[in-house]
Amino acid sequence: MTLATETPAELAGLTRRVRRHVVQMVYGAKSGHIGGSLSATDLMSVLYTKFLRHDPENPFWHERDRFIMSKGHCTPVHYALLAELGYFSTDELATFRRKGTRLQGHSILGKPPGVDNTAGALGMGLSFGLGLRLAQRLQGLEDSRVWVLMGDGEQNEGQVWEAAMAAAHHRAEGLFAVIDRNGIQNDDFTKTTMSSEPLDEKYRAFGWTVLSDLDGHDLKTIEQAYSWALDQRGAPVCLIFDTVKGKGVSFMEHNPSFHGAPPSDDEFKTAMAELADA
């Protein structure tokens, strides 16, 4: 991999580029999910550059770690990151949501290579990841892991808790649930629409090893949390990160209006200026 992400400055530079791609893609497509993409940018950037065992040159490498984008509406951040990492050209990001594109509105397994699950209907990713993880274990792939990114609104779905129960029952060590707790779902704040708190106590009660109240935008904290998770044994691990929906663009932050709506022309200009490299 030629992408330089060794230093904190280089990693921060990557997250700014990804955020600019996200805003550009949703603005260009006049649709798409900005808020949850920006809240997950730091979590995914650290994971992909420092922990995930993957190879952009060989996206179907069987022993790769699987990253499962359970919040499948947040394709902008996923595509932007995959492009930055060399899975395909960043030029292709301009085709997002356009007729004939590989970059579909919601995640499609294998399209483009690097996307490892189909998603859009919430709540299925943890189950799918559990199946992957149990298969890795059956196949004796000792170095392989499965990381599942979920939203906090997604925790409303009953299937998430079916999967949580089953993952603990099967002692699915090596399965990591990463929760992007930005506090906002489609219509409103989660505490107004459907509070699923206390999430940490719930996952713990289901038999998971849990680390919660983590700063999901502090790159060092994220790195330490992932590193800690890899050291845990005997149970699946849930990491709950507090994030800011729309992170990086002042008027989008904590704003339920930017879950699934594109920015206006003026908003686009302001956003890109705020996300410019210093």
Binding site: M124, S127, F128, G129, L130, G131, L134, Q159, A166
Partner: peptide, 25 residues
């Protein structure tokens, strides 16, 4: 070792089955 029970939870079972299939089974 090749039989996995998911309890009375068919939704989880089907998505997990898809995960196994995505690993080649």
């Amino acid at each position: 070792e090749r039989f996995f029970t998911f309890g009375v939870a068919e939704q989880n079972m089907i998505s997990a089955a898809a995960g196994f299939a995505a690993m080649g089974h």
